[in-house]
Amino acid sequence: MKVQVPIAICFIAGMIMLVKFFIPHYWSDRLEEELLNWARIVGAFALVLGISSLLRTHVEKIRRRRRDYGYSFVTLLAFIIACVLGIGWGLDPPSPFDWIFTYVFAPLDATMFSLLAFFVASAAYRTFRARTPEATIMLLTALFVMLGRVPVGDMLAPHGLFVAWAAALGFCIVWAVYPWLRHHTGQAAPYVGLLIIVAPVMVAFSLYLAQSASETTEWLMSVPTIAGKRGIILGVALGSIATSLRIILGIERAHLGGGGGS
């Protein structure tokens, strides 16, 4: 009852959604639509559960008079007032909730996230200082993407920012493989290293002579970045399918939590 029934519910719900995909029919579409509505209803209750957790935290803070408990009143009052206005008077303009959304929520949201502009650069510097070739490549790519997104990038390097990126890439390759080079080429290592640096620059120069910063960024975003992201996406997709199958078949039971029972 405590474990077998949830596993059965999970199996039936999962199999219906899975099998439905292979049976495109009016009734299977209706069944899917109804089950999705059920999920939205259950999800609404789950949201209430999450909100109640937030409210309990603040009520507890006030009850125990913890440090800065006065601000918890602000959270609770703001929540109650906005909830009453939103549920009572609707969301569409001109409603009191729309006023709160436009003049309180939207400015706070945008400003809070824009605040990160000040901290993200310094945090990044501290986190991935160019200690390794990999970190250097990451920083350089970030730098070129940022330069390519603003007009000043094209003004600084109207022709050949890509060449600079290729030179840096060659330098990082030599940095990474130099011990191996020295082991295998002995005295010739510096010359081989130089060749590794020059090669991407020459290729870049011949292929993208008239490349502007914004075009370089577009290329960076559409070729090497996509390659990296696609590898991650394919891995995540395969993992997601495997995990979903494990959940439907009841092999994966972590979401059922502890508590025992049978």
Binding site: K2, P6, A13, G14, M15, M17, G43, I248, G257
Partner: peptide, 14 residues
Amino acid sequence: RWPIAFMMGIGAGL
């Protein structure tokens, strides 16, 4: 666990 299992089943099937 019942509603959680229902949500997980729907999510996994989708």
